[in-house]
Design a protein around this nucleic acid. Structure first.
Lengths: 244, 244
DNA sequence: TAAAAATGGTATGAACTCAGACCTTTGAAC
DNA sequence: GTTCAAAGGTCTGAGTTCATACCATTTTTA
């Protein structure tokens, strides 16, 4: 008779060592970065050699990924010095579509992302507010806030909103938190593209952003977290209605 | 002139698509699960075929990982029906060792883990307390708490403490939170093995565990989070002294 | 006691990934 | 205008990983 472990832990703890092939993972990461507006329309990606290093992948593999992005119409490539790969994807306008028929497992992942977000984004805001505010950091935050506040059209607003949240994560200076927020924003982006934008919601969101920036700039960590929690809750309420 | 993105985001967002080879990742995950006590001494791991499926890896690759674990003395394998792979690793006793000469990048990762932990573990406790408490869930929690409270020797205490925290994460029922807590506990485990155990600390920790269990069982989510935050802060203070 | 079943052990060929070298194109520097 | 540098494009051989089938050992079951 061999002993058995507590039965609930193993299944919870062991998980796929990596979802898919390296080149698919590259496509996903780059496509996400482009869609979230980390590389907005018209910007040039780093060179293939640099990207390969950043993603810890061989250039051959990275090039397969680039070919896929080109194929999908997200980027265009020009050769020669000064050439490179330029983003051609226009930010999409959120609209009610397709939200009805998502696979149940996908639906589950969406709900999980909302829960996770409510933990990590307020945590990032807290940490960001906690760290000493340098000029560079202040400028990054104010620039990101200005972008989202100034965004005229819904599509542009969606991207600058992502950038705003990613910027706060970056200000936390925690590698793991940045990764967590990036992952969550990616999923969130999918969801938000599937619901119509209401001006009311955007105005409400912008007020919360303003409060968030103020709390972070004044170093009020508790308040930053609270505001971000409320912000996440409000968005989540909207989205939970969508996915049922 | 091609446009440039906001300069701070790309480096923060793009990251290695996968750290190392599949078989190394398997070794890491399994070794972590064993060291953290997910599979305690004497328990049998799932069959190679099952593990391969769980980790989304071919059996050939999984077997390489098993060979490495065998090599390292963590497990032993017997053939035939009723055979399998049994954990032979005895829990190690924490002791002051080697903590002095960790690479600076590793040190950075350790500090990052402490920050991240203070975000995700309280979040997991909050969610766990928020969900309706069924009999099964209550039993899992009480069993995990009893284990850690009853642990006589420091080595056993270390493992059951990990299991306790992982159990709370599992009770949150958020896949992403479980993954985050697992990762954090793995790093934390390394750190805790490098400091001497003080009975005072253990007693203090046990009191916090008790308060945590009570808060979760009574559905007091805010309190659960607060207690867990304090718990993380206390451990972090101990450890920051060590690496700082 | 014989057969079946569950386990680890072995083998093979295809596909993916890698590191590195080299080629081609194009704009910038001189 | 020539040269150089920086970018994408191509090639190759070695190492990993994969899916799949089959073998060997041991316990359980009929």
């Amino acid at each position: 008779m061999t002993a058995s472990p507590q039965p609930h832990l193993p299944e919870a703890v062991l998980r796929p060592v990596r979802g898919h092939h390296a080149f698919e993972a590259c496509v996903e990461q780059l496509a996400t970065a482009i869609r979230l507006g980390v590389y907005p329309l018209g910007t040039t990606l780093p060179s293939e050699r640099d990207l390969a290093v950043m993603l810890s992948v061989s250039r051959a593999t990275l090039r397969e990924a680039m070919a896929a992005l080109r194929e999908a119409g997200l980027v265009e490539t020009r050769r020669g010095r000064g050439g490179g790969t330029v983003v051609t994807l226009k930010p999409r306008t959120p609209s009610a579509r397709a939200a009805a028929r998502v696979a149940p497992e996908r639906r589950q992942d969406w709900l999980d992302a909302l829960d996770f977000r409510r933990v990590v984004e307020p945590g990032a805001a807290y940490l960001a507010a906690h760290l000493p505010m340098t000029d560079v950091r202040r400028q990054q935050l104010e620039r990101a806030y200005a972008d989202v506040a100034a965004a005229a059209r819904p599509a542009a607003h969606r991207q600058s909103d992502s950038r705003f949240h990613l910027t706060i994560a970056a200000l936390s200076e925690s590698s793991r938190l940045i990764e967590a927020v990036t992952s969550v924003q990616s999923t969130l982006h999918e969801m938000l593209l599937a619901i119509p934008v209401l001006d009311t919601n955007i105005a409400h969101s912008d007020r919360q952003h303003a409060a968030l920036v103020k709390a972070i700039l004044t170093g009020d960590a508790e308040r930053a977290r609270l505001v971000m929690e409320q912000h996440c809750d409000d968005t989540a309420a909207l989205l939970r209605g969508l996915v049922g």
